[in-house]
């Protein structure tokens, strides 16, 4: 059937598993950056300083409207012209983290805006500071409605890690390419990569839904 070679498949599997580790690591680091930076970007758009709001909003729009691969190239290849020389990993993490931070900031924004006005007023009536309002009242209520979107982008960032192959990060696609050109066989490595992505993405999506339900119950919502 299609000239599929099992012995070759078993032979390349350890390299692919190792690359899977790199892919997961890249997705995880990128996601942590995106989750934290995304919240900062969302909050920056809600400050009373209209200039800051405008700059952040335009930046978010710009990044969301241009391809991730361009941003990766920019950080890695254009950076050195301005004296910023970064490794493929660092460049990749900055680009992918920033890219997804912009998407996540919109998810947070939606979550924050879904909190009723009365919650802000009750927090004011208790004489909370702005920071206390966000930390204790608004963000805990903004996260549950944002979880579905946050989960989608976790899977999204995982599926976008192959873009890092273009600057030489040894993730799954990069490794599959290498295996393919070394052996002149592409069927097995690419098929395996597809299966690995599927085997991780599908359960992840299910687990995110379970987690969402858990958080809602935990918060009594």
């Amino acid at each position: 059937m299609f000239d599929w070679k099992w012995d070759f498949t078993w032979e390349i599997l350890p390299r692919l598993v190792q690359a899977t580790g790199n892919t997961l690591l890249a997705a995880l680091i990128g996601y942590v950056i995106a989750v934290v930076l995304g919240l900062i970007l969302a909050l920056a758009q809600r400050t009373p300083y209209s200039a800051l709001t405008l700059i952040v909003r335009e930046m978010v729009e710009f990044i969301r409207s241009t391809p991730l691969i361009l941003q990766i190239f920019f950080v890695f290849y254009v950076g050195p012209q301005f004296g910023v020389r970064l490794s493929p990993w660092t460049s990749g993490m900055i680009a992918i983290g920033l890219h997804y931070a912009c998407y996540l900031s919109e998810v947070y924004r939606g979550g924050i805006e879904s909190v009723p006005k009365g919650q802000w007023e009750a927090a004011t009536a208790l004489n909370m500071t702005v920071a206390q309002k966000y930390r204790r009242v608004i963000i805990p209520q903004a996260i549950p409605p944002a979880l579905a979107g946050m989960g989608n982008y976790l899977v999204g960032i995982f599926k976008d890690t192959p873009m890092l192959s273009v600057i030489g990060v040894a993730e799954l696609i990069h490794t599959a390419n290498a295996i393919g050109s070394e052996n002149y066989r592409f069927l097995e490595p690419y098929t395996m990569v597809g299966i690995i992505f599927l085997a991780i993405s599908l359960p992840a999506a299910g687990m995110i839904r379970l987690f969402e339900g858990y958080v809602r119950r935990k918060l009594g919502l």
């Binding site: 919650q119 007023e121 009750a122 208790l126 004489n127 909370m128 009242v137 805990p140 009594g220």
Partner: peptide
């Protein structure tokens, strides 16, 4: 006190009452 109560939904009754005294 408000028409629509505006209790914090993610906190218990006791936590709602303790929130201001502890945090503020």
């Amino acid at each position: 006190c408000f028409q629509h109560f505006n209790l914090f939904p993610h906190m218990t009754a006791l936590e709602n009452c303790m929130e201001g005294p502890v945090q503020v």
